[in-house]
Computed example of a mutant assay.
Amino acid sequence: MESPLRIERHGSVLEIVLDRPKANAIDAATSRLMGETFREFRDDDALRVATLTGAGEKFFCAGWDLNAASAGERPDSDYGIGGWGGAIELPNLNKPIICAINGICVGGGIEAALAADIILAADHAYFSLPEINIGVVPDIAVVALPRRIPRHVALEFMLTGRRMEALEALRWGLVNEVLPLNELMPRARQLAALLADGPPLVFAAIKDIMRRTEGMPEHLALQQGRALASTQKCYNSEDQREGARSFVERRKPVWKGA
């Protein structure tokens, strides 16, 4: 059996393509493989950015594989170290992830995409959370979606199971950009190259602070954020000194992640 993932390394960028015809649906085994892939990405110091997209032009991901569900796979199956889709529950994943939505993105497809820091969408893509029709709680979306778009919009979207076109998703902030399909991956690669050239310790601290302080009162969040090991590592790093030196010397910094 062919792997449901196509994985390529381009320098410090890892490209992951979900490739499970016909609809790129995810079963437990695929989710576990995605988790292993994102764990390897997290732990490989040579990799700085990951991109995730779907194969083909019609589907990014149709969510949970209902063929597996009808054969007995449960909604609370073992989805691997990173939880559903491999990344959203993976501890200490402090590297940037870009998701390129190349087509229909429904159910667990949205939940997999919500693990990304930047989401791009093709202009023909649309989104839906139809779990109400199969009696499943979209638990990841319930938690993560109101953190990305207004609460009342997220709630209405989940309760009705309606369709959201790409431009509406852009308006609410679910996606960062909407592009023609032929420009989608070139833009994702452009952003990935930009981030891969940036300061990895700063990016790690930004993600860590955001994740650990979400929902805290501002003064507590500031105290907690400054005290985190990732922040202190950044403050005490050679990269921090390199940043100051390169500014004074009017040259491009050379980031070493140390």
Rank of each mutant, 00 (worst) to 15 (best):
residue 113 A to D: 05
residue 117 D to H: 14
residue 118 I to H: 03
residue 106 V to M: 08
residue 128 S to C: 12
residue 131 E to D: 15
residue 124 H to P: 00
residue 121 A to M: 05
residue 110 I to P: 13
residue 108 G to R: 12
residue 122 A to N: 05
residue 119 I to D: 11
residue 104 I to C: 06
residue 132 I to W: 03
residue 90 L to H: 13
residue 130 P to M: 06
residue 107 G to E: 05
residue 101 I to N: 05
residue 118 I to D: 06
residue 117 D to R: 07
residue 131 E to V: 02
residue 119 I to N: 10
residue 100 A to I: 14
residue 111 E to D: 14
residue 119 I to V: 15
residue 127 F to Y: 14
residue 116 A to N: 00
residue 97 I to T: 05
residue 103 G to N: 03
residue 98 I to V: 14
residue 130 P to T: 09
residue 111 E to S: 12
residue 108 G to T: 11
residue 104 I to L: 14
residue 123 D to A: 14
residue 129 L to C: 13
residue 95 K to E: 00
residue 125 A to N: 07
residue 93 L to Q: 12
residue 118 I to E: 10
residue 124 H to Q: 14
residue 102 N to Y: 10
residue 97 I to E: 01
residue 113 A to W: 00
residue 108 G to S: 12
residue 91 P to Q: 10
residue 126 Y to C: 11
residue 126 Y to K: 04
residue 110 I to W: 14
residue 98 I to P: 13
residue 132 I to S: 10
residue 130 P to H: 10
residue 113 A to K: 05
residue 106 V to C: 01
residue 100 A to D: 00
residue 93 L to K: 09
residue 97 I to H: 06
residue 97 I to W: 11
residue 130 P to L: 06
residue 110 I to A: 13
residue 116 A to G: 04
residue 106 V to Q: 07
residue 123 D to Q: 15
residue 91 P to Y: 07
residue 108 G to H: 12
residue 92 N to F: 04
residue 98 I to W: 15
residue 94 N to W: 15
residue 118 I to S: 02
residue 94 N to C: 05
residue 99 C to V: 04
residue 129 L to V: 05
residue 109 G to V: 00
residue 131 E to P: 07
residue 106 V to Y: 01
residue 109 G to W: 00
residue 99 C to I: 00
residue 102 N to A: 12
residue 101 I to R: 04
residue 126 Y to H: 15
residue 96 P to H: 04
residue 91 P to G: 07
residue 126 Y to I: 03
residue 131 E to S: 10
residue 107 G to C: 08
residue 91 P to M: 07
residue 118 I to K: 01
residue 98 I to C: 11
residue 109 G to M: 03
residue 106 V to F: 01
residue 101 I to H: 05
residue 112 A to E: 14
